[in-house]
């Protein structure tokens, strides 16, 4: 199995050449990222008050996606650890929620999760009764009950997205996708929200990186820039900055090179990026390649401070 080639975008610096397609990688990455913030119900795509049987069902569904045995002897790189982490989390949620004693303790510690959100009050008793009937009917029909829950989640997800709260939107839509893994609409929405969410986070990270660099915390800055570059693969500035700081802090030269190259690919006419790439190449000992980049860069901007440094008059080559 090979990694699908995506000619429209530069090769992502941190995407690994593993037996998982890019969509799955993105899905696992983002779920792994929000894992810590999810409660036991959310992790399984359930609403508070879900029954034992619902928990079991959701857990089995999720296991099918995240149990490491589904990827037996596959090359998963760092994703193996992520998948294990996700599985451990859903399995913990299942263990707590299906054990009456542990569930009681958990719900006591988190009173807000004790039951489903209250229904709005009805005008008349008659209507209340009818609505109750309807609901029981829905509850009896698993598909409809699921459909209802699905619509609710999608609506809430869309609203949150509109309000700019992409984190919450992602959580809701993720739950929806767990309920109905084959629904294309949810999938598209999820991809979009994930994308926007990542762009938003990327710009935050970029800002954080700049601040860290200003106060001289280069390691933190490098981490932020790399994070930003990974989340927003079209951001040349983030890539270039990440490369620069990786170089300065002496970390992962291969990654630095990939990032610097990406910056150049994204904005081929910017001398800054060219210089960055040249410096990285030079540091890696690839002097010839570095030299070409310096020349290119100098052509673009002969007044660049870096160019001046570089274009010292050549020593005389005369031997006599």
């Amino acid at each position: 199995m090979t990694h699908p080639v995506r000619p429209d975008s530069a090769p992502p610096a941190s995407a690994e050449d593993i037996d998982l397609d890019a969509d799955r990688q993105a899905e696992i990455l983002s779920l792994d990222r929000i894992l810590g913030g999810l409660n036991h119900f959310e992790v399984l795509g359930l609403s508070p008050g879900a029954s034992n049987a619902q928990v079991k069902k959701a857990y089995h569904e999720a296991s099918r996606r995240y149990h490491p045995d589904r990827y037996f002897q596959k090359n998963l790189g760092s994703f193996r650890a992520r998948i294990e982490r996700i599985f451990k989390r859903i399995s913990e949620a299942n263990a707590v929620l299906t054990d009456p004693q542990r569930r009681k303790e958990y719900e006591q510690a988190h009173p807000e999760l004790r039951s489903a959100p209250a229904q709005p009050a009805r005008a008349s008793a008659d209507e209340a009764r009818r609505s109750q009937e309807r609901r029981t009917r829905f509850a009896k029909h698993p598909y409809l009950a699921r459909g209802n829950r699905l619509n609710e989640l999608i609506a809430r997800g869309k609203e949150s997205a509109k309000a700019g709260d992409f984190g919450r939107a992602y959580t809701d839509l993720h739950m929806a996708s767990q309920l109905d893994p084959k629904n294309h609409e949810i999938h598209a929405l999820l991809t979009e929200v994930r994308h926007t969410h990542e762009l938003q986070r990327a710009s935050e990270e970029l800002k954080r990186g700049m601040e860290a660099e200003k106060i001289g915390d280069l390691i933190a800055a490098a981490k932020s820039f790399v994070g930003a570059a990974n989340m927003d693969k079209k951001n040349a500035l983030a890539a270039s900055k990440a490369a620069s700081l990786l170089l300065k802090t002496g970390q992962d030269p291969k990654e630095a090179r990939a990032l610097a190259q990406r910056a150049v690919d994204l904005e081929p006419n910017k001398a800054d990026h060219r210089f960055m790439l040249a410096t990285v190449l030079e540091a890696a000992g690839m002097t010839r390649l570095a030299h070409r980049q310096f020349e290119e860069a100098t052509k673009m901007n002969p007044n660049h401070p870096e160019a001046k440094k570089r274009l010292k008059p050549k020593k005389s080559r005369w031997l006599f």
Partner: peptide, 13 residues
């Protein structure tokens, strides 16, 4: 078989 054949629906927890 389940471990070595992706299409298998069997998963053991």
């Amino acid at each position: 078989h389940a471990l070595t054949h992706e299409e298998s629906q069997v998963l053991l927890l």
